[in-house]
């Protein structure tokens, strides 16, 4: 039984406890940021920020809505980054928890290629080329603890458990939330281990809230497109 996280954005207050708890557990350094007029900080994920509460101010039905989206790796059931990676020791899946894990060997992969393969725009490369992202706190899960972000969440917006339990919890929550927000929906629940519940159009929360064909930073290059098609074969040849 793999694990899953439910993130109910209607309960999120954007306190950013998850964001800080993630940094704390992983011993990741702070980033130098500037005030851009939003409480969202930093502005984007990086090799040292695996979790980021995205904040959007928008007007829906003549009412100001402040939308919060604690963004992180979804740990896809069938992860495109995993099939994109030629080196099996760089990206692998822990079949017990469902975590998609990146190792130091990701430094031999093409970061652009891996980033572009992600429908949620998550992986980021560091200065030495190592690609990093949320690791599902796999070490904590194996030792009977919840992921750091879920442990920290004071409002109960984040829940962790067996995939089946989380899916039924998500359905229950969706029914309740729909009474107040008729447009509420779960985001790609059958494809990912980190399931979001949103009250409004997901594209308002983040460009990549639901799986997107990634345009990449400057568009998909020809080589990436070819690799995407040839991925499984290249992988087989590499292993063989």
């Amino acid at each position: 039984m793999t694990k899953a996280i439910l993130i109910d954005t209607t309960l999120c207050t954007a306190c950013r406890a998850c964001q800080v708890a993630c940094k704390q557990w992983h011993d990741l350094p702070a980033e130098k940021t500037t005030n851009l007029g939003s409480f969202q900080n930093p502005q984007d994920l990086s090799d040292r920020t695996y979790k980021l509460v995205r904040m959007t101010e928008t007007v829906i039905d003549n009412r100001l809505q402040w939308l919060f989206f604690p963004d992180q790796c979804r740990h896809c059931l069938d992860a495109p980054c995993l099939s994109m990676a030629v080196d099996k020791s760089a990206i692998y899946r822990d079949d017990m928890t469902g975590a998609i894990l990146y190792t130091q060997n990701t430094r031999h992969l093409d970061p652009e290629e891996i980033n572009v393969s992600c429908p949620y725009d998550i992986p980021r490369a560091g200065s030495d080329g190592t690609i990093a992202k949320c690791d599902f706190c796999n070490d904590r899960i194996h030792n009977g603890l919840k992921p750091a972000c879920v442990t920290a969440c004071p409002t109960g917006a984040m829940q962790f458990g067996d995939r089946e339990d989380i899916l039924s919890m998500a359905d229950d929550r969706l029914k309740r939330v729909r009474k107040k927000f008729p447009g509420a929906r779960l985001l790609n629940p059958d494809e990912v281990s980190v399931i979001y519940l949103v009250a409004f159009d997901p594209s308002l929360y983040s460009d990549y809230a639901v799986a997107q064909a990634h345009q990449g930073r400057g568009g998909i290059s020809r080589s990436v497109a070819v690799r995407k098609m040839m991925g499984p074969i290249a992988r087989m040849m590499h292993i063989g």
């Binding site: 306190c15 950013r16 406890a17 964001q19 800080v20 708890a21 940094k23 704390q24 442990t151 920290a152």
Partner: peptide
């Protein structure tokens, strides 16, 4: 009081 949770200040 908090049953395991902390805010962003407490988490740091």
């Amino acid at each position: 009081i908090n049953r395991g949770s902390l805010c962003s200040k407490g988490s740091s």
